[in-house]
Amino acid sequence: MATIPRTARLVAVETKLFLREPAAVFFTIMLPVGLLLALGLSIPDFRKPDPLLGGQRPVDAQFPALMVLLSVMMLALSLLPTTLVTYRERGMLRRMSTTPVRPSSLLAAQLVIHVGVAVAATTLTLGLGHLALDMPAPPAFWMFAGVFVLGSTTLFAIGLCLAAVTPNSRVVQGAGAAVLFPLLFLGGMWLPRQVMPEVLRRISDFTPSGAFGQGLTDALAGQAPQPLHLAVLAGWAVVAGLMAARLFRWQ
């Protein structure tokens, strides 16, 4: 079957289209990497050991973990749903169903691209952090990779759910922002989790972003992620995945 080359072709063209959107490249790659480097290099406090982080410097684990979280959340909750809803709105999924290629291939291609960009942004964040800020390489690489895969699955499932329940591209952008910003906050983007009031941190524990952010931080610091956070991520992934599968419309 020629299915594999066809899908590869689709991925290649859709990747080009992704890279032609300056905003997409900026928010998912340049912003997280740039923030880490710019703030990490210019603000000395980020390079001082912090007792609240077990004596680690913020740039060792927490800051890069949050930048990975930022990139994945932008991709999963904003860019992917907007692209999919726009494609549906423009009749492209329907148009594709008249060709030998199923519209689900287009969805799969988009997922591959967005996950690929998340991996690339993460690699750049960790790699440049290592070179410029003397960030240690993840001491337990597979643990980090495991948390990354689980958390990304969860966020992309929520993104697909958003694409499934929103009728048009204007609504999906609004809904995406309405989900994205509270989740970024609860993930500790503005107020790190260790200085959050106790009750807020407990709420954050049960959100996908809080659990993912802390899991990534733990894994980058060489500690095992908390079972609670892994369970929270898995739970959200199952619920959102099932909802997306049930509710997604092709036209």
């Binding site: 020629a2 423009r90 148009r95 060709t99 030998p100």
Partner: peptide
């Protein structure tokens, strides 16, 4: 029915051609 804004004419045609046997 429309296409993505940034796709070029040649890309669209060659992509759709690749769908068929």
């Amino acid at each position: 029915c429309s296409l993505p804004d940034k796709i070029r004419v040649g890309e669209a045609l060659s992509l759709y051609a690749s769908f068929y046997s």
